[in-house]
């Protein structure tokens, strides 16, 4: 390539997609941004807000890696447009740690029980479990009950057994068991 080729190129920085204004409260912080109307909420959180703890595994709603909480309920951020979240309250894995930097009971339990290996599915897994813990519903802590609770989140590393243990351990740590 010529040493001057770059001078002839004008490379744009952003797309010319139509945008809309979106206001969300994310992990307690309310903010307003212009976003492309077709941007998936997962991309908005990860790249727009640079909260990269939320992972993307399939972008068709099956694997659950991108699970976050919208208005207190677990949801797939890859199956939601950012514009749909206007006015919503969102929680991501980044909210899970305590303010003093210590791990939440759920996180502690995952570490104690070796409930993660590569850690890619983990944030989505934890947000799904978090939504159940926070919903006030009675937790079925039998093996089958926990497996059903986490069914919907694929994990390719752990074989799930240690995640089952971690859920039970977290219930103990939080006085739910």
């Amino acid at each position: 390539m010529s040493r001057h080729e770059h001078l002839e190129r004008s490379i744009p920085s952003t797309s010319s997609d139509p945008t809309a204004e979106v206001t969300v409260t994310i992990n307690g912080v309310t903010l307003t941004r212009q976003v492309s109307t077709r941007m998936l909420l997962s991309d908005f959180i990860r790249h727009g807000l640079r909260l990269t703890g939320t992972h993307v595994g399939c972008e068709h709603g099956v694997c659950g890696a991108c699970t976050i909480m919208i208005d207190g309920r677990a949801a797939r951020s890859c199956l939601t447009f950012a514009v749909q979240a206007d006015g919503a309250e969102i929680r991501t894995i980044e909210s899970e740690e305590k303010d003093d930097g210590t791990l939440s009971a759920l996180q502690q339990a995952f570490q104690e029980c070796h409930g993660l290996q590569c850690g890619y599915c983990t944030p989505g897994m934890i947000m799904n479990i978090r939504s159940h813990f926070d919903s006030g519903e009675e937790l079925d802590l039998s093996d089958d009950g926990i497996r059903e609770l986490i069914s919907g989140n694929l994990c390719r590393c752990t074989g799930y057994a240690n995640i089952v243990k971690a859920v039970r351990r977290a219930a103990e740590l939080t006085g739910r068991a």
Partner: peptide
């Protein structure tokens, strides 16, 4: 217990994307 876990559990992992 694994050294890497706190980073992965808090969303501080640094995957390529």
């Amino acid at each position: 217990k694994r050294n890497i876990d706190p980073r992965l559990l808090t969303g501080r992992g640094a995957f390529t994307d």
